[in-house]
Amino acid sequence: MLRPIQVQLPVLNLPPLQAKIKEENGKLLVLDTLRKKYLILTPEEWVRQHWIHFLIEVMDYPKGLFSLEKGLKYNQLSKRTDLVVFDREGNAFLLIECKAPSVKINQSTLAQALTYNMPLNCPHVILSNGLQHVCMSFEEEKSEFIQVKNVPKAP
């Protein structure tokens, strides 16, 4: 029989998450409410689950528009995005690249997020370690991403 366990996880700079966490075979697992299954609770997964919660519960994003760990090809390399939200026409709208809270958000991590976005062509990209978030939107006139203050409204 599974029983809830008490775990001390980092407090992130996102709305609190009441996650279902369990221990199995010595590993902590967190319930991914979108995929309806338990996943290994890595620091990166903790950040991703907070973003999912925030986008659905606070920003009113529809659950059906999410794609998690989507595979993509870039320069012959296979990569996986952390979180992509599509608009109602099926176009990639928002890419969120999640890092562990211990990973610094810098030019290198920013370049990685923008590289992942090349085949997707999302007009909005967020890079987050759960503590610091960089939100960017593509500006047509300048033909480049610029940093913005707010997460885009739901598509």
Rank of each mutant, 00 (worst) to 15 (best):
M118L: 15
P152Y: 06
V134Y: 05
F93W: 15
N91V: 03
L12Q: 08
E23D: 07
L31Q: 12
I52G: 05
P43H: 02
K27V: 05
I52E: 12
E69L: 12
T33P: 02
F54Y: 14
I52S: 08
L83N: 10
E141T: 08
M136T: 06
P16F: 07
T42R: 03
K99A: 07
A111R: 12
K27F: 03
K22N: 02
Q112L: 07
L29Y: 15
P101T: 08
N75E: 13
T81P: 06
V103G: 14
M59T: 01
S78W: 10
Q76D: 14
K20P: 02
R80H: 14
N25A: 15
N106Q: 15
V85P: 01
H53E: 13
K153M: 09
L12S: 08
H50G: 01
G64R: 10
Y61W: 08
K99S: 09
I146H: 03
F66P: 11
T109R: 03
C122D: 00
Y116I: 05
N25T: 13
L41Q: 03
G71F: 06
V58E: 08
V47P: 02
Q132L: 08
P10D: 10
L65F: 02
A154W: 04
I96V: 14
E69V: 13
R3P: 02
T81K: 10
L31E: 10
V11R: 13
E57W: 00
V47K: 01
F93C: 04
P4K: 14
E97T: 09
Q112W: 09
K73H: 09
R48P: 03
K37R: 13
N106Y: 11
I40Q: 04
P4S: 08
R35Q: 13
L39Y: 03
K104V: 07
F93S: 03
F93K: 07
K79Y: 14
L9T: 03
I5N: 04
Q112S: 14
I105H: 13
T115N: 07
L41K: 04
